[in-house]
Write a protein that binds this DNA or RNA. Structure first.
Lengths: 206, 206
DNA sequence: ATCCTTATTGATCGGGTAACCAATAGCGCT
DNA sequence: AGCGCTATTGGTTACCCGATCAATAAGGAT
């Protein structure tokens, strides 16, 4: 078969670092919008208007791109959730309120997605462990500062942080459930667990 | 192109109900062993030694088979977890212990799997809602019987059951995490939450 | 023993995926 | 202004998947 020699169309050429960044951002966007398994060479290429081969050029194995996209999406969202001013109690209340609100849906979906997929890709499991540790660290800091100010009362800041994080993960479990009135009893779980483990009166966090 | 007429090999013919059962069992097995997304026409066919076309004959849409397989696997495992004799406290302790043990891994994986996949297939979301309601009902019964015997102390049996179920779902979240010493703090969560919400002394359930 | 229903096979179609590679064209450097 | 490096394209290959359909054989009914 005679190979047909064809001429590539014109294109704009970007510095490798920038292009790589662009690809990562596109993949992270797909992860949040449509799910990690929708990160395909073709989908990413289409999102930024290049040909599929270019994605493979920067990420020879698409799985590596998927893991990097999760890290990107998870860490950028994490800073948003945990930033802010106020007393530890106020910050904890905001943290709790976030996961009871609709605003947490994309992030929760991403985590549920990743936790399942980590069953098949160990690299993703490792990335999850890192992100989880980062969360835990921040929450532990928050609890510790509340302890030193006398706002919270709990024997072990780290253990309390684990409980709070687990309560958060419990609610993310249900993120894909169809909405309904019976969901009502579920929404206060994080606030209740946090108040319980921090020695606050029930309802003190929302 | 002339169609080549070929002769099918001999085969054993089974009554439709029995074959359907066989297919469902195979699919449920794949769901527990390898994950719901590995339920493919070809994989199921190979598992029971038939040709792929036969699977499509009984389940024209493979998605319907996937949903049915989840229901089958989830409900059969559920009865195992919740059966048994003893006082409500003893039964609750066994329930809690199950989810802290390795024995819960396949079931937890299945649920995590289904909860993520339900994002894309509404029929699966509906099946999950049913299975979850069944769990909740059984747990509520257990709590209620403990209340009437004076073993538990909590204002609302249904609300307590929701909390316990959520604690279970929190632990299933981590089922795919690589094992490690830092997992230790997570393992007592269900027992702690259950004791807390049932008005039992900490550690009373494990 | 023959017929008739249908369970089962064999084969194919269309579409999605990752990965690879040669040829080209953009762009910085000299 | 020209050269060389390489980012980018076009094209291909090999696997997966679900779905469809005619032809066949199995086994119960008569």
């Amino acid at each position: 078969m005679g190979r047909v020699m064809s001429s590539p169309a014109s294109y704009t050429r970007k510095p490798p670092g920038q292009r790589r960044e662009e690809i990562l951002a596109a993949a992270a966007g797909i992860a949040l919008d449509d799910g990690l398994e929708r990160i395909t060479v073709r989908a990413v290429a289409e999102r930024i208007g290049v040909r599929p081969g270019l994605i493979s050029h920067y990420f020879p194995a698409v799985q590596d791109l998927m893991v990097a996209a999760f890290e990107r999406a998870a860490s950028s969202e994490r800073t948003e959730v945990l930033l802010g001013e106020g007393t530890p109690t106020e910050r904890m209340a905001r943290f709790v309120a976030f996961f009871a609100s609709e605003a947490s849906v994309p992030l929760s979906r991403l985590w549920l997605n990743a936790r399942h997929l980590s069953r098949f890709t160990p690299a993703l499991a490792a990335a999850i462990a890192e992100q989880e540790a980062a969360y835990l660290e921040r929450i532990t800091e928050m609890v510790a500062s509340g302890l030193s100010r006398g706002e919270f009362r709990t024997p072990d800041a780290g253990a309390a942080a684990v409980r709070i994080l687990m309560a958060v993960d419990a609610t993310t479990t249900y993120v894909n459930d169809p909405p309904g009135p019976e969901r009502f009893g579920y929404s206060s779980f994080v606030a209740d667990v946090a108040a319980w483990t921090l020695g606050l009166p029930e309802g003190a966090l929302g």
